[in-house]
Design a protein around this nucleic acid. Structure first.
Lengths: 233, 233
DNA sequence: CTACCGTGACTTACTAAGTACGGCTGCGCA
DNA sequence: TGCGCAGCCGTACTTAGTAAGTCACGGTAG
């Protein structure tokens, strides 16, 4: 405790002094820090205590701004949704949905801890709702029927989420891919898994391979299929 | 503790008597119970203590069969993979992959807690490896090139996993769908989300709607696209 | 100027969970 | 018969979430 018992923050309350006598601690600040901790040290490192310490505050103070840890998890999921670009309902639906899908993928790649949370948090936040609404509006404005919109929506989101799950499960970042792949390959070099070995050695471990390219392939397949089902096309 | 301090179980050790003086506690038994607990009470209810109690054993005894909680999580993920039907590499690739996809979906629906674990467990278990190998072999035997196999594999699995994420996020089971949907609809009946309301009221809440049907649509789209990319077709 | 009160942060302490460490017991083998 | 080991248990330490009560400050009414 470098700022004294309580006198440090009490001078004005709003003056952001040199040694940073901390801003008044809002829900937004709490969630932003929580996202930062999860990004940097993983979701497991996000505890009420670590979060409080990062905000230069005692754990129980957080409860004045969020209802509890679950509320924080709900909140940071919605922060993540808020970072995704929304499609523009009026324009070129294909381009808009592609842009939105790529943005969602890159956001989920930046926050891989969010992927498992998408599932466990049943109550959607406002950014989540806005996001879904924009996608639905884009599809409907493009001329898709309601049932076809449901199909398209489910398929697109399944792909985006599923791809995020796969990327999050990749044990290596781009730089260390070869070594790790080799280590894994060594595990099943016994010949028990010839097809996996083939794929790894002949393709995935080759220089220039980027798993992210699979995203463009899948996205193209899906958007092509949707376009083909559009009556006016 | 109704069975006394320790005398109850010590009589024979192997005789599965009437009051069930418990089998010798193996890794398999531990994992099976863990799966059962997660199925019945959710992943959060799976603790070393609850697991031990369900096995009529003290917590620390578990550590003689599994390295720790993480090992249990790895283990039950692999149990889940083991429940999925494998595709037959020789046969009709489209039918085999469809069967495998449907099986995977139904398994993940039965064990929704497994979906977030798929992501966080980087080290694949034996059933997982077998599963991937079988899918890859089916694709290669069908005539897909190695790069195309990578595309197909990523797309198929992204869809299956993503669909599982969506299903796991559904806040209701089939029976209670209408009420919950109505409650949610009431939340945004303010008119802020007209497209979501439209979709919910005109389609999802209609009798006979089953989100699972979206799976068949998406699966068909993907398999059609893969078939179209096959040279000999 | 003073009494009052609401807000926000702090202190303490309880409970649940994972697990390290060491002890006890009964069975197989020499 | 005795010895070692596998399997189980008891105790206790550590971390995490959070309930409950307390304190300091600032604004406002009298």
């Amino acid at each position: 405790m470098v700022h004294g018992t309580s006198a440090g923050a009490g001078t004005g309350g709003a003056t952001p002094g040199p040694a940073g006598p901390r801003a008044p601690l809002t829900r937004e600040r709490v969630l932003a820090r929580a996202v930062a901790i999860a990004d940097e040290q993983g979701l497991a490192a996000l505890t009420m205590r670590s979060l409080a310490q990062a905000l230069d505050v005692k754990p129980m103070s957080l409860y004045h701004h969020v209802a509890g840890k679950d509320a924080i998890l709900d909140g940071i999921v919605d922060v993540v949704f808020g970072e995704m670009e929304l499609p523009e309902p009026g324009g070129d639906w294909r381009a808009e949905l592609a842009r939105r899908a790529r943005s969602a993928r890159s956001v989920l790649r930046r926050h891989p801890w969010a992927v498992p949370l998408l599932e466990s948090r049943a109550v959607p936040g406002p950014a989540n709702l806005r996001h879904h609404e924009a996608v639905l509006a884009t599809l409907r404005d493009a001329g898709f029927s309601v049932p076809m919109t449901a199909h398209a929506y489910a398929l697109l989101d399944a792909f985006v989420y599923g791809f995020a799950v796969q990327e999050a499960a990749l044990p290596f970042d781009a730089g260390s891919a070869p070594q790790v792949a080799e280590a894994i390959a060594a595990q099943f070099s016994s010949g028990d898994f010839p097809r996996m070995t083939e794929l790894a050695v002949e393709h995935v471990m080759q220089p220039g391979y980027d798993f992210g390219d699979e995203f463009e392939y899948g996205l193209g397949v899906i958007l092509d299929a949707l376009a083909a089902s559009l009556p006016g096309d």
